[in-house]
Design a protein around this nucleic acid. Structure first.
Lengths: 182, 182
DNA sequence: AATACTATTGAACACTTCGTTCATTACCTA
DNA sequence: TAGGTAATGAACGAAGTGTTCAATAGTATT
């Protein structure tokens, strides 16, 4: 990829992230984004079809990255993997709190609903992989896909609650709540 | 309230509901609403400040009504009330399925996320009232407000899953899943 | 260093939607 | 029936959208 492309892409992402931490998505205009990114109007549309696509690509980059990171670290502990999926989810909470990629900033802003929705899509894949560990604790009458949905949703809701509370509790406590609830 | 006011309000609500069952909220314009409602532009703005307020008022009307209905029926069974909150939640699922106020139509459309978000606000109040029954089954380490949030969220997620599946399963099965999950 | 290629620019474009105004008309209720 | 209130519709400025295009500047290749 051309260095110019990389630079403008970065500039747009940064400007957008910055705006998202302060304004509602619906209130942000392309005008503002390109002004802050210092990029021509035509350039913006050469990179992203619409504002919605920009959001989508940003989220993909953010959440794919954070989940891969959590899964990667898991491998160091893979002896325990069969006992409990704790490491993965604990690492997820930890990464969220560490404010990688301004995730904490974004999740604390007015648009957290928006991000959490995208986050859930990625989490569903993760829950599916970790399903065996949960199935043992839950009633077998529950359909498989219901359970996957429930795990992903409970994680999201836990994050939402954590964020609303100011993310004061340590990841270790939160992951415990998550396990007690799910 | 003047009959004329009631009539235009109704006409706008109906037109809006109709559109919501077919298009995404963001794609619906005031233009379309007033055309379908057969109401003057100025009239619309005399009733609702913006499109968002219209949505808000519609949701309030819908969900307050359905929850009150479920709670009302509960009183017939209030001998069992101390054992389990099942009647309330079962009635909620039943009302949803009965398509009162086109709720089913709306929940099956592209905007279900939108409605479920509003629905959750009302559910939180309900969960708070029903909390004692849940607290017995759950670990006491979980904070009270975390549990309330978890109950409301699990209900919403259950509905979401139900709807995505085409609402084929009977309310009795769904309420069972809800209890097993929560 | 000369070349061909490709990205960026910025202004201008037509188009859509928004929310407001206001004089006129129609309707309601007491 | 009289006085008050709601609805009307056309017109308005403001703001945003997504596109076009010729000119410019940066990159990669040889």
């Amino acid at each position: 990829m051309d260095r110019r492309q990389r630079k403008t892409r970065r500039a747009i992402f940064d400007a957008f992230t910055d705006l998202l931490s302060r304004k509602e998505f619906g209130q942000i205009t392309v005008e503002e984004i390109i002004r802050r990114a210092d990029v021509g109007r035509a350039t913006f549309y050469a990179h992203f079809e619409t504002k919605d696509f920009l959001l989508k690509e940003l989220c993909q980059e953010l959440f794919c990255h954070i989940i891969d990171a959590a899964c990667g670290q898991e491998e160091h502990h893979h002896i325990f993997e069969c006992d409990t999926p704790a490491p993965v989810f604990l690492h997820l909470f930890s990464h969220l709190q560490k404010n990688d990629n301004h995730l904490l900033t974004l999740l604390s802003g007015e648009n957290n609903e928006l991000f959490l929705r995208y986050f859930k899509t990625e989490l569903r894949r993760l829950a599916e992989r970790q399903l065996p560990q949960f199935e043992a604790q839950k009633d077998p009458r529950l359909p498989r896909d219901f359970l996957v949905e429930h795990i992903a949703a409970t994680f999201i809701e836990t994050v939402r609650w954590w964020v609303k509370d100011g993310m004061r509790l340590p990841p270790e406590t939160i992951v415990e709540y998550f396990y007690l609830a799910v």
